[in-house]
């Protein structure tokens, strides 16, 4: 584990020294939050929209922005850069477990995810958004977002290890957009058209989004929260196994 932590520390230093890669992670999700609220806010006034539980439409949209931010991780792109530059081989030539190379970057993504999610939520609070589930809910909200960041970074690392190409890895990241838009992104699931509702029900991101949303709009709704964490746990385990397998067979 000490090797993973040492590599995680390095990845965090790398992120700190590349602020130009971090800024869009914060800016673009906030941009989408403002634009989406601006476009649909009047359709869903808080006084007469039951699913908002008395909050503004921004509170309903915040989970989308959090998930978007969590899906902008740069770990895989830095990994490809290392593969192309030869440092990845330097790491592989050390006697550390192959899993440490994967875990190091994922630990850094977790730390970055915690910071970015906290920043976005704190920036949203002055605009009238409150976390209805309280302090515990706030902690769970940040934790779930950061864990999703790890899952998605794991997925991106898989593409990076398989293709060893920055272009392919970059393109692979775009898969998140269809996944995000096949969720109850603008309205609750029961208000979607039937085909969209089926698609959203099959989409695992839906359950993460609904868990995040319940933490913002409701008191602690443990069934929805548990579903969100369960999805992240299952997908996280799959990503970890596939990453480790990929790096062990890397030639």
């Amino acid at each position: 584990m000490s090797h993973s932590l040492a590599l995680g520390q390095r990845a965090l230093r790398e992120a700190w020294r590349t602020p130009e890669a971090l800024v869009p992670t914060l800016f673009i999700p906030l941009f989408f939050l403002v634009v989406n609220v601006g476009q649909a806010g009047k359709i869903f006034p808080s006084a007469s929209t039951g699913f908002l539980n008395g909050q503004g439409y921004g509170a309903f949209q915040l989970p989308s922005s959090l998930l978007l931010a969590a899906s902008f991780g740069t770990a895989a792109l830095f990994l490809v850069e290392e593969i192309e530059g030869g440092y990845f081989d330097k790491l592989r030539a050390t006697p550390i477990p192959r899993t440490s190379i994967v875990l190091g970057r994922l630990i850094a993504e977790l730390a970055k995810g915690l910071l970015i999610a906290t920043a976005i939520v704190l920036l949203a609070l002055p605009f009238g958004i409150t976390i209805a589930s309280g302090l515990l809910g706030f902690v769970l909200l940040i934790a779930l977002t950061a864990l999703w960041a790890v899952v998605f970074a794991g997925f991106m690392q898989l593409i990076a290890l398989k293709t060893r190409s920055a272009a392919a890895t970059n393109s692979g990241g775009l898969i998140f957009f269809p996944l995000l838009f096949l969720t109850p992104n603008f309205v609750p699931r029961d208000m979607l058209t039937r085909p969209m509702e089926i698609a959203a029900t099959l989409n695992p991101v839906t359950y993460v989004m609904e868990a995040l949303r319940s933490l913002i709009l409701d008191d602690l709704a443990w069934d929805r929260i548990a579903r969100g964490f369960a999805v992240v746990a299952v997908l996280g385990a799959i990503m970890l196994v596939l990453n480790v397998r990929m790096i062990r067979h890397y030639d």
Binding site: E82, G86, D89, A93
Partner: peptide, 13 residues
């Protein structure tokens, strides 16, 4: 010890 063709180093450190 291994030093490969590309001088594999992490430029940000």
């Amino acid at each position: 010890g291994v030093a490969l063709q590309e001088a594999g180093l992490d430029p940000r450190q």
